[in-house]
Write a protein that binds this DNA or RNA. Sequence first.
DNA 1: CCGTCCAATGCAATATTGTTGCATTTGGAG
DNA 2: CTCCAAATGCAACAATATTGCATTGGACGG
Lengths: 150, 150
Amino acid sequence: MPEAQGSADDGLASAIAACRLRGARVTPLREAVLRTLWAAERPLGAYELRDQLSEEMGRQISAPSIYRTLDFLCEQGVAVRIESRNAYIACNHPEDDHACVLFVCNDCGLSSEIENKKLERLLAADAEALGFSIDHRVLELSGSCADCRG
Amino acid sequence: MPEAQGSADDGLASAIAACRLRGARVTPLREAVLRTLWAAERPLGAYELRDQLSEEMGRQISAPSIYRTLDFLCEQGVAVRIESRNAYIACNHPEDDHACVLFVCNDCGLSSEIENKKLERLLAADAEALGFSIDHRVLELSGSCADCRG
DNA sequence: CCGTCCAATGCAATATTGTTGCATTTGGAG
DNA sequence: CTCCAAATGCAACAATATTGCATTGGACGG
């Protein structure tokens, strides 16, 4: 579940608005996928989304459609792929550059994106020292969230 | 290519020794997979390993054997799976706890594992603040290495 | 040396995840 | 309205990963 920051509806609405501002087309399928991600309480796989949306929309949605839609949403910065799970979540800070750390609970799936500027600086310094130019970062920490640690 | 630190042979030998010290069985297949990873100049996929080893060993190695072997090597800390690529590399510091950052060049595949204690502390602090207990970390940065930036 | 046992491997089938190519539809610009 | 490009539908397929069960092989006690 994307961490609280207004309601999921607010998040969805502002994500859609952000896409439109950039001139991107928010089609019914794209909106439905994003809505499903916002409503989910955990990361969803592509085929899970396909099944759920096929039911919701009363017709078969194909895997390629789902993947293309997810690509679009990730490019727009309103969804994020979790590499270590082959799954996706809605992203609640489309404005910044996704320089965040993702905590994912193995138990309930709760996913929290945390920004940490100091950490960014350390990574940038390491990259600099190596002469490495960073295109894409994957920072995923899995374990147990506060609720599930019982 | 695992970064220089003695020769690849030294790395391979010490990785094998480390496994044996723990009482783990280092079979011909396990050794061959690890040797191939050490010799590779880039991360290798499971099926790539299967094909290469099938040729080397003069018989068909099956996918399950490869996956089981890779699981073993990762558990032993002598190999690492790169989640963002579905690929594996040999690990050159089986001694510590794999609290490292991995830089992977999109161009040549060069993979450098960097330790960064400050970064570890920051992540631990974020986790603490969330009440989150970390099981597994994935820190993978892809981009262009110094040589490929030309 | 022999038998027993268990970990490791072989192997076939299958599941899951992701992609390609091409036809068709849709929505917006002119 | 017409045209164009983007989006979607769809079938086939490719790549990655797992399951279940049979077989092998080495370690160890006798």
